[in-house]
């Protein structure tokens, strides 16, 4: 599976609904993701892609939409 699909998969599981039609929606603004879910996301990404994303590197403005998360993960893998 490509990175994109895997990230969407993880997000869907954490959020509990399909987000593939709202790839540029800010999920902190619309309340879909809270701090708790954010940590789940970081842990799942760490487990899946073997990347290090410490909490203090987590800048909300850089992680607030599905597309941005995908870009972030791709840059951390690369």
């Amino acid at each position: 599976m490509a990175v994109k699909e895997e990230v969407i998969d993880i997000l869907n599981t954490i959020i509990g609904e399909d987000i593939s039609d709202q790839m540029d929606e800010d999920f902190f603004d619309n309340g879909l993701l809270d701090s708790m879910a954010t940590v789940e996301l970081l842990l799942d990404l760490e487990g899946k892609f073997d990347i290090q994303a410490p909490v203090s590197e987590f800048n909300r403005e850089e992680w607030n939409t599905p597309n941005k998360v995908i870009a972030k993960v791709e840059s951390l893998i690369g």
Binding site: S35, M36, T38, V39, L42, L43, V55, S56, F58
Partner: peptide, 10 residues
């Protein structure tokens, strides 16, 4: 939130 809550949850 960032230094206590999230770290504790993590």
């Amino acid at each position: 939130r960032d230094y206590i809550f999230m770290r504790l949850v993590f």
